[in-house]
């Protein structure tokens, strides 16, 4: 779908613009959280085993036999290391923990309040309210969808939004 060239813009009539939008803020917060998590993903599609072959899959938690049966990448590559890794190293290689778990285990949340940590270093929220940007075309979004609160700029974008993106279920 190439950009619409020089398409006339229609103004949204006041009915839509003035409609009261009320959507549970928790629901919106969840949607935002999910979106931000998606923006941190390394791969959009996780490959199925049939596509990649078995040599380089993500270690699936709980799916394979624990312990000995697991192989590290270097085990598979057989770089001919004779030395056996220490228990510490072996543990780190075989048991991957996600960042949330690692933060919990680090104990940084129970440090004295005046100790700066990863948790305290995040910048404060902005002082000004967010700018509304059309979720379809990126122009200023003057209006908000009555069903899902996403901003849009005009009738064209409202139509595209309704057709393709409006989240009836929101989450």
């Amino acid at each position: 779908m190439p950009p619409k060239r020089g398409r006339p813009r229609r103004q949204v009539q006041s009915t839509a613009a003035n409609a009261q939008v009320w959507i549970d803020p928790d629901v919106l917060a969840k949607r935002t959280k999910k979106h931000l998590e998606e923006l941190e993903r390394s791969n959009y599609t996780e490959p199925s085993a049939t596509l990649t072959g078995a040599d380089d899959e993500e270690p699936e938690r709980g799916s394979s036999v624990r312990g000995r049966a697991r192989q590290t990448i270097s085990d598979k590559r057989e770089h001919g290391r004779k030395k056996k890794s220490t228990m510490n190293v072996r543990t780190a290689l075989l048991y991957r923990k996600n960042l949330t778990t690692l933060i919990e285990e680090s104990g940084i949340s129970s440090l004295p309040a005046n100790c700066p940590t990863y948790l305290t270093a995040v910048v404060p929220p902005p002082n000004e309210p967010p700018r509304l940007i059309c979720s379809v075309c990126g122009y200023w979004g003057k209006y908000k969808c009555v069903r899902c609160a996403m901003p849009y700029c005009d009738l064209n974008c409202e139509a595209v939004h309704k057709e393709t993106r409006c989240e009836r279920r929101v989450i």
């Binding site: 390394s42 380089d56 990448i73 270097s74 991957r96 960042l99 690692l102």
Partner: peptide
């Protein structure tokens, strides 16, 4: 491409992948 990154949100969490790269 399918990526397996040693880092998650800026911190080293996948030591298996990291070791392979360091090796």
């Amino acid at each position: 491409l399918h990526y397996r990154l040693p880092f998650e949100k800026g911190y080293l969490v996948d030591w298996d992948a990291q070791k392979a790269v360091w090796d």
